[in-house]
Design a protein around this nucleic acid. Structure first.
Lengths: 212, 212
DNA sequence: TCCTAATTGGAGCGACCCCTACAACAGGAG
DNA sequence: CTCCTGTTGTAGGGGTCGCTCCAATTAGGA
């Protein structure tokens, strides 16, 4: 513990190799999914032999899980959720939606691979799927907090429902863009999404007059 | 053509075998995706040898495409889109959404497998993916027609945007239920979805007073 | 300079993959 | 009965899979 740990780490190019492996894997796995990702293909794409991959990662499952983790982190940095700037709730919700839309366009690998893993239901769940669902829950809670802050009058289950709806809409719109190609204007679709969520929140939080 | 076709079809149990193969395939492919579906596994599940599978289907790609086609048809029969019954637009949109939600709960294999195929981006596209996107476009047009009928004042691109949003929301909510399990009340989430779409359509179609 | 640990190179193992070849069997037609 | 056609059964070929083993190479610490 306290002994001979001078400055010896990062001796060779191990760290860079790890990044090269992850770069190659995220590209292949984002295109072909779990089973479609072969170690041989990753090896060919990153130029390192399979033994190097298995030196850096325990097995294929570990590699995919690491890819999910790193993709989520890089995606988080591009989201850059706004803190507590001024503006009406509608303006702030719209700004957030635009940010998320742009980040999904810029770094789509995370959500594409994650959704593929999430839809699978194999007997022994891959660790990457669990990791994705976990970070997804974190995002869910963050959004729920923001909604609760913007609309303090909302009941707790209303916040939960709106958050679920917000995330689901984002997923669906993302899928639409993945299917239809780059011509889809994700930002404007997210703008509509934000507006509808805002109106729903305002209605749910507003005074209960005019129920029908 | 007009000759010796008495009543000879279905001599052995060929038709039933085809169904057994499709039943086994939709189960496995709905769980594991394209690459995760092996002919050996299908053979084991349906009890027929691989040669029978390859007698009924040209290759694995053909099998998956056939599964998509049949799943879509069985899903269509459970949707049972309402014709032209009476009611306000909101009532009719809500009814449609509830129907779709119930059908997705009853027959989720079609959309689960379809979304998995749609998210993949391999160099040579599987035929099943093309089939899914095709029937998806058919659904899209049907929904667009209904929206245009319910809200005649809507501009054409507004109908298109709303249809895209409706389909995307349905996809996302479906994914949410697939991830979170049977405890998710898909019908009530679709009810909210229908209401938001209706409000958006009414606002877009209505007089442009009170823009802010 | 030698020792040691981190990393790479490459061969290869057993299992599984998709798919095929071909014999065996069933039942209607003659 | 014999044929003929649709369907099943068995065996396996050629290839890829995830993964392992181990020698070779590199660079820091002594």
């Amino acid at each position: 513990m306290t002994g001979p740990q001078t400055t010896r780490r990062k001796r060779a190019n191990g760290v860079e190799s790890r990044q090269r492996i992850l770069d190659a894997t995220v590209e292949i796995a984002g295109e072909r999914g779990y089973d479609g990702t072969s170690i041989a293909a990753v090896s060919a794409k990153c130029g390192l032999p399979p033994s190097s991959i298995y030196w850096h990662f325990k097995d294929k499952d570990d590699l995919i899980a690491a890819v999910i983790e790193r993709s989520f982190e890089t995606w988080l940095t591009t989201v850059d959720l706004p803190g507590d700037e001024a503006g009406t709730p509608l303006e702030r919700v719209t700004l957030m939606a635009a940010n998320v839309a742009r980040s999904l366009v810029a770094a789509p690998d995370f959500l594409r691979l994650g959704l593929m893993l999430a839809l699978e239901r194999r007997p022994t769940e891959p660790r990457g799927r669990a990791v994705f669902l976990q970070v997804r829950d974190i995002s869910h809670r963050r959004i729920a907090e923001i909604i609760a802050t913007l609309f303090p009058a909302l009941a707790e289950d209303a916040v939960e429902t709106l958050t679920t709806y917000a995330v689901a809409g984002a997923d669906g719109l993302f899928v639409h863009r993945e299917v239809k190609g780059d011509s889809v204007d994700l930002v404007s679709l997210f703008e509509l999404h934000a507006r509808l969520i805002h109106d729903a929140a305002a209605r749910m939080a507003g005074p209960p007059i005019r129920t029908n």
